[in-house]
Design a protein around this nucleic acid. Structure first.
Lengths: 343, 343
DNA sequence: CTGAAAGCGCTTACAG
DNA sequence: CTGAAAGCGCTTACAG
């Protein structure tokens, strides 16, 4: 087990001060006007000793860690792990590394992850914020830490965010179902005040109204995040025995998969008896006997935008306005929604 | 934007030295024999100022960062993101935070991730090592950094590892297929020297031999990791037109999904025309019209074991032997493998 | 019971 | 062209 080599070691070997070595190795020999040959010699010895800078020491000096903290609901959810991958790659391009934490949609847990990350002097946060945590986010901002919201957002323009046009997305989905002659369209969503979910609900209601379909409360199904499979099974059971719906719009991929599972178990024909559209993407949607129509949001676009915003804020920490980047939804139409398709 | 409060600020306000504050806040007032009332006062002021320790400064002193570096092939692969989630939760219990990187099965990329993490003084690594990187791993170990291999491993006992009994797993799968009267069993695996894949191949061959089925090279399908979907489609096409196989064993979930996609597109009946077993788990396997039989490995067990080993090594850095924890596979039998099942 | 001081590894304004 | 010194925020052996 070798001892790590430090600037001091190089300095000693070359017979020069630590300061010189630091300048040279940081490419500041011009500024410090260090002689060519000395610079060469220092670089040679550094290479010979295989010098690796101690980034922790650099961080203590600079207050920067080149680390981005990514907080999502659950890293094992494919939606979030795909975002994580994009964020990782994009961050690396700028010399940043990503540390992650899952909030499980729980405000307390989110706060504790924020605390831990902040004490480690994470440079910026990218957060898919749990519902009801706007105070956490504003507090962070007030402490001068850049925060980019992703997927989730709050009303008001208090931080940068990257999000889907949720209202539009839901409207498009409902319109498609109506186009395919569905009139009894249920929305399966989470029991939450989270704004992105509220907007999906709003889009659903808007589209019903525009199509002259009365909204029925019994067709608005709210599921608790902690208990998805069981609640979906139970609440859907009530709607299909006897059949009171002819379509489901599922507000996330987890809900979509849960609904599929129930529908599949109960042997309900898709799209014969009920049509189906889900938000987000899932491999599962491709393999269901009736491939599932879904609202696609470009994860690549979202992840890249989030990192770009973070890096910008880091470069110029005092911009007066916050950016909101709105990703356009795309409805990928396949068999499950009941129209004529090639798939 | 407030300035962060430091020990100094508390010390000034209380009118005492920084050392005292440090002792008290670290619960070492006993050792330093500090008076009750002074300790109380210091704690009160710390709370009042909402003091948060600077973990970077602590790290510089201690050489510890309480960070675990997790390196996998691709964090967006459900297998690895599930592991990441377990590792995250488990690490948190011990006060560790997780930083992650994807290697894309590329040795150079893996080395660059290792370098970055090491310069940040990550305390320990958990790595699903890319093929041919044993030198990287031994080098890390020689530098005194604890490394736990997960999922992947190398021959020889040179570091701790947590892995599946790959040979046994493949044997069990093949035996099941034989039991269901399959004789022309193809193995779809990666074109790699990685030992876990070699062992799966070995298990496949062992089981064939034990069942008196001659091994045919044409039924050993090797796919390059970089181009899964296309190669699977192409190579499988050759085997099914005309039909020269009656079963596929897929060595990972990505391969399983790719094979399913091809089989599905070409409208081959499962298990009527060909039977199917895959390694790993996937939501997709549940929704295929013929639910897919798979080799289940307990990700929870693996993740927990890896973190436990890491924490142990951190506590006691000089144990003479390395631990190898071997997870037992479990074959989850469903319709796709062609026997009689309830599913 | 408490404080002054050194040191973790680095950067950088200052002096010469 | 180069070095001595202060300082980032913390810990801890030492002295009193």
């Amino acid at each position: 087990v070798d001892k790590k080599v430090a600037l001091k070691d190089i300095a000693q070997k070359v017979g020069v001060s630590v300061a010189l070595v630091s300048y040279v190795l940081n490419g500041k020999e011009k500024i410090a006007r260090i002689s060519q040959e000395m610079a060469e010699k220092i670089r040679a010895v550094a290479a010979e000793l295989n010098y690796q800078p101690n980034l922790i020491a650099k961080s203590l000096k600079s207050g920067r860690t080149n680390t981005i903290g990514l907080i999502v609901a659950d890293i094992s959810n494919p939606f979030f792990s795909s975002i994580a991958r994009i964020v990782e790659d994009e961050a690396r391009k700028y010399g940043y590394v990503v540390i992650f934490g899952s909030s499980d949609e729980n405000a307390d847990k989110q706060q504790s992850v924020i605390d831990v990350f902040e004490n480690r002097l994470v440079d910026a946060f990218i957060i898919a914020a749990a519902s009801g945590t706007e105070k956490q986010i504003t507090a962070l901002k007030n402490r001068g830490v850049p925060v980019i919201l992703i997927d989730r957002y709050f009303s008001g323009d208090f931080t940068d965010s990257v999000r889907l046009d949720d209202t539009l997305a839901a409207e498009q989905a409902v319109n498609q179902l109506v186009l395919n002659n569905r009139k009894k369209i249920a929305l399966v969503t989470y029991n939450t005040k989270a704004l992105h979910m509220q907007h999906r609900e709003e889009g659903y209601k808007n589209a019903l109204k525009k199509n002259n379909i009365p909204f029925k409360n019994s067709l608005l199904i709210k599921i608790n995040y902690q208990n998805i499979e069981a609640e979906v099974a139970e609440k859907i059971a009530k709607l299909i025995d006897p059949l009171q719906v002819d379509a489901f719009l599922c507000a996330t991929n987890s809900l979509g998969v849960a609904v599929l599972r129930t529908v599949y178990r109960r042997n309900i024909q898709v799209p014969g008896e009920i049509a189906l559209i889900s938000f987000d993407k899932s491999d599962v949607f491709d393999f269901f006997y009736s491939p599932v129509t879904y609202v696609s949001q470009s994860i690549e676009e979202m992840g890249k935008a989030a990192v770009t915003l973070a890096v910008q804020k880091l470069k110029d920490p005092t911009p007066e306005r916050n950016s909101t980047i709105i990703i356009q939804p795309m409805l990928v139409i396949r068999k499950s929604c009941g129209g004529k398709t090639s798939d």
